[in-house]
Design a protein around this nucleic acid. Structure first.
Lengths: 244, 244
DNA sequence: CGATGGATTGACAATATTCAAAGACAGTGG
DNA sequence: CCACTGTCTTTGAATATTGTCAATCCATCG
């Protein structure tokens, strides 16, 4: 259903009833994937963008047999593919981490939206620019943080985004379906080193963690350790629009 | 003058005369900065986006006194700030690497554009999504490439982008105003290690290089070493638009 | 119950950093 | 035109961080 997209976009702009109808009309069916399945392969024709309705997925690239890079996790309410519109094939693999439900959305519909609603144009634009801010933070992580700080920063980001998506606090215990190997591929570390870092965070009282769950015990200290920029948590700023 | 933006956007869409006029009208004066000056500081109110008209600049963040991360270089024709629109302060420092001329562009004008031209909306959107593709590649670099590969990939990207901007081939000798310390901050490496990597590329006949210039001698081997995705060089794909 | 995929651990190796010193270059003022 | 200064680059040696390999453990699932 279109509610999926509507809910997400409302965070970024005041949608009129027309906007909502426009979105709903353009929305297609939903599709389910099992954990581990490839939702969309690199090189495939990418006619659709997706909204993750439920579950976790990730964007990745396999360089050599054994070398993989994951650059983003996608969870409830996240868009996938809105950054690949000017390429005619998809640039990355989109893989289901858990069982996942996605809502495909034909990309040419996005252009219709650009023609019909300034508000929606702005909303999509804002989403894309927010995504970019997060990616820049990952670059800082990968470039200039120690392994421990990288891990701290990533699990903070995950807990905050996840909590945001399903509407709970970041300090609550959450399902954590991500294997240590995935964390390694996200941060450019070996899974062995992820293991050691996670256990160090545990030992020092930052978190509790087992293969299926994660809880952040001390947000303040984690923020501090990870040098996390709290700006990313703020509600999107809408006042750059022209009210006149 | 507005030709600066117009030229850039034409790469991404067929602009009508109206589109061009719209852009020209919204364009403001240009501003000069000397090498090393901070064009826009993190935390400052960011009412403007910029187009780099001439020269080099970079986006960076200083974490601790001595730890800095540079996540992007900006050169002739590049946009700065179009990814920070939904924040009410700028997230990063924008620093002049060489003497640089920028064209500021009030960000609320961008919203006017969203209201008036579907073509321009799409063009800006495409630019943003192209930027993101490049950033994802840097994430792959930072995460899963060796130092030598990182350096190879970065100088390839720089030579290609620079050549593109000023209209020369990537294998020609270019000005190279970037210090080894900047390269280190871009790639998360120490400047000492950058030095060793650059000299190794030199020794193996990949490049010539001194403090002020760079030439790529063997593009094929460089592409191969860096595992560079040639898709990023393609002209933007415009057919996701709705021709009907 | 055995099979499987992940987590954990230890020993060792590779890669990159740090520190410090020396060399090269461009700009400045005499 | 030269000496002087500050900024970059280059180099070597010692160190730190992270990776690799291989064995073992543990939980889950049929």
């Amino acid at each position: 259903m279109g509610t999926c997209i509507v809910k997400k976009l409302q965070l970024y702009a005041d949608l009129s009833e027309d906007d909502k109808k426009l979105l709903m009309a353009l929305q297609e069916e939903e599709e389910d994937f099992k954990a581990g399945e490839i939702i969309r392969k690199k090189g495939e024709n990418s006619d659709h963008i997706y909204v993750v309705k439920h579950g976790w997925a990730y964007l990745s690239l396999t360089i050599d047999k054994d070398i993989r890079s994951i650059f983003d996790l996608k969870m409830d309410g996240d868009f996938v593919g809105i950054n690949e519109l000017s390429f005619n094939e998809s640039l990355y693999d989109l893989v289901a981490l858990t069982n996942v439900t996605v809502c495909p959305f034909p990309r040419k519909n996005l252009d219709i939206i650009f023609g019909k609603s300034r508000t929606l144009s702005r909303a999509f634009y804002s989403i894309l620019s927010r995504q970019q801010a997060l990616i820049y933070e990952r670059i800082v992580s990968l470039g200039r943080r120690t392994a421990l700080e990288k891990v701290a920063h990533l699990i903070l980001e995950i807990a905050l985004r996840y909590g945001n998506g399903i509407g709970i606090d970041a300090s609550e215990k959450i399902d954590f379906p991500i294997r240590q190997e995935h964390l390694g591929d996200l941060l450019g570390l070996s899974s062995v080193h992820i293991n050691r870092s996670m256990n160090e965070l545990k030992r020092h009282g930052y978190i509790t963690y087992d293969r299926n769950s994660l809880q952040l015990l001390d947000l303040d200290r984690l923020f501090n350790l990870a040098n996390f920029n709290p700006l990313f948590l703020e509600k999107p700023f809408q006042d750059w629009i022209d009210k006149g």
